[in-house]
Design a protein around this nucleic acid. Structure first.
Lengths: 333, 333
DNA sequence: AAAATCTTCGCAAGCGCTTGCAAACTTGTT
DNA sequence: AACAAGTTTGCAAGCGCTTGCGAAGATTTT
């Protein structure tokens, strides 16, 4: 059984309140009394019971990390840096994997409302927007969004400029002299995906290349999706000379299909992927990709939520991070 | 401000204790009283404050997931299934990434001792053994180990039979008629690695192939490690005809080196990897691997710790799961 | 040296819940 | 009709901590 405040007070020969004030660096304790108490605390390795502390102060120092699928691309990296930042500020992360299950989602979002956690971070994906909204409308629910965006309601968010990413990728291909660039993407109702499309279009416009609807292949974000996309594209009248693929799995499938078709990358088709997972680096040929600042994403999210909890101002409610182009073999001239 | 027990009691016109008993399905509440209370609870969507509940019952329904590096291979998969299982039993996982930092490790392990969490799961890696021991010696610290093993002290553990994995991989290569099988592995002081070596040796013995120390390449578990391993092996007098690689990253590096050297897989060298990450499937050629039952690992770990918490017996203190061989191109005849 | 001010400290209530115990109420038995 | 036995409910203490407020002590002021 761990020591309690009472025990420390008894040992030190002072009242519990004095010990409490000493430990929490609050005024109202004499210098030598404080030192004596701290000495005893150190000696006995006393650590206050967070439950009791939380109950009294109405805070848990817990953060809910709500994510549809923990195994998402780059998520471990993001989460790792999130945990680190949170931890340094004295917070712990609790995992809430929703599996895209509406009920679980709701339960988890409730954690905040029920004062079980001090705040929540929603990471990526298709978390039901109305759930979020309902939560957000309860004024004091603290919430930060990472790599996703809420509609109709303003919630502190940190995300990557996917339009910029799409732009970078497309421009890179255009700069290689390619003009018929196919875009293989996921469902366009996903904000992240549609932004990439925007960037793609912007790039074409800047280079005076006409946009051709045919070259946009929407499929599901999977390996098969990528695989099939290639054969779908091969059916159109004028073949593309380059591919911009918005997702890792898609890229894998696509490159497999290309090779299967007996074509060479980058000889016949240049390919640019999205997301600097290890996969894109080991695939053959190594993929040129738009890389997202994963660590920064995680760190900022943690910083944001902690600031919110402490009633500190946030610089930018929607913080947009710049992606970066990593050039490898799959797009060399 | 959420409703409290008191509020519900007032609405129902009964004492708090009655409400508490009704909610917790305890005896001593009349049927219609109970129903009436539950009705009100539902209607107001009341959820007890876990902090207060925890304080009174001395339990938090929190589990610490202690892991050296969250981004480890297959960990997201394990964690996902762990979270699911824990959650179904009413527990939440809190992330504790130690970064192999001894101080953090200690702090996190303390969470258990300080009654901040009801139990802890240590996942993989090189968590300092003496830390664990010290913790384990405190009788009532609840701890489960996943994919690692404690020395000198018996702690409930669930892990994969790596010796079996090594055996399967090696036998598979032997069955292809290969006789000079190199083993590329991580540091042998890692129990997981040394077990694979044991399996390898056992397989050789069963097939009457002499063990040759030269063919064992110990390196660090990284891509470069794998890359360099190949060139180290090429210096020995008699070249191998097959490789058993104990790790994903290692396998990537090794295959790169092999291709770089102008050799073919599986033509010149057959390769078998370990751990069925997506990487092994997308690499060229697709890797034959020993796959670990990741989901089961996570689920069992959660089940174990929850059983411990509830003072239930555990079938086997050390639960060993069977790996499985997935045959792909890299080892075809 | 007494009064006024500041500092240091302890008392006690409260955070929201659980639980042992006794009071009140049922029901069954003779 | 009276009592035993069982059931249902409420009282109150306690989990370990924080914090407002007043008491005591130390320090300064006139």
């Amino acid at each position: 059984m761990p020591l309690t405040l009472k025990d420390i007070a008894k040992i030190a020969g002072v009242a519990e309140s004095t010990v409490s004030r000493a430990i929490n660096n609050k005024p109202g304790v004499g210098a030598q009394t404080r030192e004596k108490i701290m000495e005893i605390v150190r000696e006995h390795n006393y650590q206050p019971n967070q439950l009791a502390q939380g109950l009294a102060k109405r805070e848990t120092h817990l953060l809910a990390l709500i994510v549809a699928d923990l195994t998402g691309p780059g998520y471990s990296e993001i989460i790792k840096s999130m945990e680190k930042t949170a931890n340094q500020a004295g917070y712990q992360l609790i995992i809430c994997n929703t599996d895209n299950n509406l009920a679980k989602e709701k339960t988890y979002l409730n954690l905040v409302g029920q004062h079980r956690v001090d705040g929540a971070i929603i990471l990526g994906g298709t978390l039901a927007n109305n759930n979020i909204m309902k939560l957000a409308l309860n004024q004091d629910e603290l919430l930060v969004l990472v790599n996703c965006l809420a509609e109709e309601v303003l919630i502190p968010t940190v995300l990557v400029d996917n339009a910029r990413g799409g732009y970078l990728a497309t421009v890179h291909l255009l700069e290689q002299g390619l003009e018929k660039i196919a875009l293989v993407m996921g469902p366009a109702n996903d904000f992240l995906e549609s932004e990439k499309l925007n960037g793609y279009q912007q790039a074409l416009a800047d280079y005076n290349i006409p946009f051709r609807e045919q070259l946009i292949i929407k499929t599901n974000l999977s390996r098969e999706g990528g695989y099939n996309a290639f054969f779908r594209v091969m059916k159109i009248d004028e073949l593309p000379d380059g591919f911009f693929v918005t997702n890792d799995l898609l890229a894998i499938g696509l490159t497999e299909a290309i090779k299967m078709g007996g074509y060479l990358i980058p000889g016949d088709f240049a390919v640019v992927g999205y997301g600097d997972s290890i996969i894109s680096a080991v695939i053959n040929p190594a993929l040129t990709v738009v890389a997202e600042p994963l660590q920064q994403l995680g760190r900022l999210a943690a910083e944001y939520i902690i600031k919110l909890i402490n009633d500190q101002a946030i610089e930018e409610v929607i913080r947009v991070l710049e992606p970066e182009l990593i050039i490898r073999e799959s797009s060399s001239p």
